[in-house]
């Protein structure tokens, strides 16, 4: 019963957050300068067309009325129609979201895999020559802008060495009838290598440094000293005792990193011509395509909120103490 009400509270809280996101997005875009009609300005653009477009986009009604119409449609699962494409926002988002998710999660898993191991290793080798080189190196990767790193990787591995293609998810004209057939093809992984590397090189710094400092704290704890006294091997002490405990905050940071990573995708998707949601988002915002921009941001908010929920639940599994009150 108690668990049930806890979940209920959590759901209500989540819904409230979503409503707040929707409301802020709605007014934010409409307060920005720029008109959605800008894209149509042309010598043949007649006054009647302008009025028809305004009516068509529902922009002839007062703002509060537009807001309630939008909320009403949203409750029925209708994200509306894009001003720019004239087709369903939901269709557009779901066509692009998988590409963004696979890029985000592949790069994060790679970054966290490398980051956690390297962080643990560096904590173990505290004060050594390795640390002297590794820490400045990690800080450098953290400081490199993603678009710059992406262009460097393109120049070296694509244009000079020719190892990897320069953009897209598939070779020109390659026919993959389903997403699954695309994602399981060698072509796709070849195309994804450089964007994933770019994102991973940038993202690995956070888990690495976090893991290292957690490890340094944990290594000072009594149970680690106890393990050493018991005469356990270094491997057993570092990995089985210390690393498992140091991992907990890193897991939480993973969920938060998803949000940051999607933000990084905006840049990387443009550099590598990746057909994802991030690129679409930028275009939608700059073209005042309110329905699509709102829909895309909402979808990203949903992913981030869902990841936070997952992190909370995962935490309970990894560290049962948090569920006790």
């Amino acid at each position: 019963m108690k668990a049930f009400s806890a979940i209920g509270a959590r759901v209500i809280q989540t819904l409230f957050v979503l409503w707040a996101v929707v409301t802020i997005l709605f007014f934010l875009f409409r307060l920005m300068p720029g008109s959605p009609l800008a894209a149509y300005i042309d010598p043949n653009f007649t006054p009647e067309q302008q009025d028809a477009l305004m009516a068509r986009f529902g922009l002839d009604k007062p703002l509060w009325q537009q807001y309630f119409i939008y909320l009403g449609n949203l409750l029925q699962g209708d994200l509306g129609e894009s001003f720019f494409y004239r087709t369903s926002v939901a269709d557009r988002i779901f066509a692009l979201l998988p590409n963004t998710l696979i890029l985000t999660f592949s790069s994060l898993i790679l970054a966290y895999g490398i980051g956690v191991l390297a962080g643990a290793y560096l904590a173990w080798k505290r004060g050594g020559a390795v640390e002297q080189i590794a820490i400045p190196l990690v800080l450098t990767t953290r400081a490199m802008p993603e678009f710059w790193l992406g262009m460097i990787l393109l120049a070296v591995f694509s244009f000079s060495l020719g190892w990897f293609p320069a953009g897209g998810t598939r070779p020109p004209g390659a026919d993959y009838p389903t997403l699954w057939s695309l994602y399981t093809s060698a072509d796709f992984w070849r195309h994804m290598t450089l964007p994933v590397l770019t994102l991973a090189i940038y993202a690995q710094g956070l888990p690495l440094l976090l893991m290292r400092s957690n490890m340094l704290d944990v290594m000072k704890e009594d149970f680690v000293t106890m393990a050493r006294i018991k005469g356990l091997s270094s491997y057993s002490v570092v990995i089985r005792h210390a690393a498992r405990n140091a991992l907990l905050p890193v897991m939480t940071s993973f969920a938060i990193a998803v949000g940051y990573q999607i933000q990084g995708n905006v840049v990387v998707e443009t550099v590598f011509s990746w057909p994802g949601l991030g690129r679409e988002l930028v275009r939608a915002v700059s073209a005042s395509d309110y329905p699509l921009a709102q829909g895309a941001f909402l979808m990203i908010a949903v992913v981030v909120i869902a990841m936070n929920l997952v992190a909370d639940l995962l935490y309970a599994v990894l560290d049962p103490r948090v569920t006790r009150e």
């Binding site: 393109l154 320069a166 953009g167 897209g168 443009t270 011509s273």
Partner: peptide, 14 residues
């Protein structure tokens, strides 16, 4: 075959 390449420098590289 029309490829959408938002990155101008990459288009020239391609």
């Amino acid at each position: 075959i029309l490829r959408i390449v938002p990155n101008v420098e990459a288009a020239l590289g391609m």
